[in-house]
């Protein structure tokens, strides 16, 4: 059976890690990802060069995976990173477009351009955790537990896979909607990875 061993739910208002609310936004403001990073004592300077989509997915994975005691050094061929969202990399696409607008304001930057690929967030999580299995990014109009379950279950037909860091990683112009789950085969702890349980976690606001 495939189980959800750990999860992180990040919305504009709060962060819930394995059922526990660990961080809330101040006042009327949206949650600040850099404050979340500092609050949790994470030490990974590459975080600061990431775009918002990558920061969202990175933090979702980072918080969940550290609760499992997963190290960041050992190469992990049996682990995959599979994320999905609705807007792809539109948040960074809009930022990049600003850099190529006109003759006087034409300064395309490779460090902005690289994040105009939605799958870069999967690469960031892979690099941090030495994940060397599959990395994939899918796009659907809306979050759907059915799509999540079928895509991830099908990935598990690869028998050399024992864990998938998966989830919905959406960030567009200050609006974030993130559910990252560490899903494992043959583990004792965690709820079954099915649509009912995926929806329960997504419904946490």
């Amino acid at each position: 059976m495939i189980k959800i061993a750990a999860y992180t739910r990040i919305t504009n208002r709060s962060v819930v890690l394995n059922g526990e609310k660990i961080f809330t936004a101040k006042g009327e403001n949206s949650l600040n990802l850099t404050e979340l990073y500092r609050n949790r004592g994470i030490d990974y300077p590459k975080f600061f060069k990431m775009d918002n989509l990558a920061k969202s997915g990175f933090l979702g994975a980072e918080l969940a995976l550290r609760t499992l005691g997963l190290d960041t050094v050992t190469p992990k061929k049996g682990t995959a990173v599979i994320f999905m969202n609705s807007s792809s990399s539109l948040d960074d696409d809009i930022a990049y477009q600003q850099t190529i607008k006109s003759g006087e304001n034409y300064f395309p930057s490779p460090s902005v351009f690289v994040y105009t690929l939605a799958n870069i967030v999967t690469g960031e999580v892979a690099i941090r955790n030495k994940i060397m299995g599959e990395s994939s990014f899918y796009i659907f109009e809306k979050f759907s537990a059915n799509n999540m379950q079928s895509i991830i279950e099908q990935a598990f037909t690869n028998t050399s896979l024992d864990m998938v860091v998966c989830g919905w990683v959406e960030y567009l112009q200050g609006e974030m909607d993130v559910l990252v789950m560490a899903v494992q085969r043959d583990v004792v702890r965690g709820d079954e990875f099915n649509t009912l349980n995926i929806n329960k976690l997504y419904d946490i606001k």
Partner: peptide, 9 residues
């Protein structure tokens, strides 16, 4: 098969 380098973006 799809495999990540876990090396550089």
């Amino acid at each position: 098969a799809i495999c990540n380098d876990a090396n550089h973006i």
